[in-house]
């Protein structure tokens, strides 16, 4: 790869990281603040962000941690929230298959929701999902994630009006933008409708975090069912 092409990919990656860094900052800080409130030290909070590196599951873990539940149950709940990453890995792995093994192993560590979605989108546009692009996007998100955690853990008590600042709703907005980005894919609307309805029903009936796996399964199963079967071509 030429030096200028490589530089362009790095710049693309950095650009893609920017909205993620902005929209995940409140959650990193919120996590840090809640973690300290629920009994973790500042160091443990930052260590969790740096090693688990999966926002939603960290929130769930810290929520349960504060309720003196058996440690293995806390770990199991974190695993349940993160189970969707198996699907991400299988799906985006097709684009990472040509990477050197070490880069691929490292790449999977950084496979958070927006990283996955942007990699899929970039691949779909016919642009190279290269290590240079991927890690240029991943590095700022990762570094800011535990800096934000540290800020929240250290100064969390100072935020007076998180609701008025919209902090709880920035990620849903961001994720909607990502969902819209996939609207050219086959069966997009039926999949979104199935997952949306199933996740809301599951949220009421079974509760969080299971609504994520159940809702996602509904959409994915629908796509598999409706996929044209090559064994029975249309007449």
């Amino acid at each position: 790869m030429s030096e200028s092409a490589r530089r362009a990919e790095i710049i693309d990656g950095l650009k893609a990281s920017f909205p993620v860094v902005v929209s995940s900052a409140p959650f990193g800080m919120l996590f840090g603040a809640l973690a300290v409130k629920n009994g973790l030290t500042i160091g443990e909070s930052v260590a969790m962000s740096a090693t688990v590196y999966a926002g939603a599951s960290q929130m769930v873990g810290i929520e349960l941690f504060g309720k003196s539940i058996a440690p293995w149950l806390v770990v199991l709940s974190i695993f349940a929230v993160n189970f969707r990453h198996v699907l991400y890995s299988a799906s985006v792995g097709r684009r990472l298959a040509q990477w050197p093994a070490l880069a691929r192993w490292a790449g999977f560590f950084f496979l958070v929701d927006p990283q996955y979605a942007e990699a899929e989108r970039r691949g779909e546009q016919g642009l190279p999902v290269s290590p240079a692009w991927y890690f240029a996007m991943a590095a700022p998100i990762y570094v800011f994630w535990f800096i934000d955690t540290w800020i929240g853990a250290t100064f969390g008590a100072l935020i007076k009006d998180p609701h008025g600042l919209g902090l709880d709703f920035l990620l849903p907005l961001y994720f909607l933008g990502m969902v819209m980005g996939f609207r050219q894919r086959p069966l997009w609307l039926p999949i979104v409708a199935a997952s949306g309805v199933a996740s809301v029903v599951a949220w009421h009936v079974v509760g969080s975090p299971w609504h994520v796996s159940i809702g996602a399964l509904a959409g994915v199963a629908l796509a598999a069912l409706l996929a044209p079967d090559p064994g029975r071509p249309f007449a």
Binding site: S91, V179, H211, A216, A218, L222, A223
Partner: peptide
């Protein structure tokens, strides 16, 4: 279908 399905549940 994975990206749209999972992100929708979030």
């Amino acid at each position: 279908a994975v990206p749209a399905a999972v992100l929708t549940t979030l």
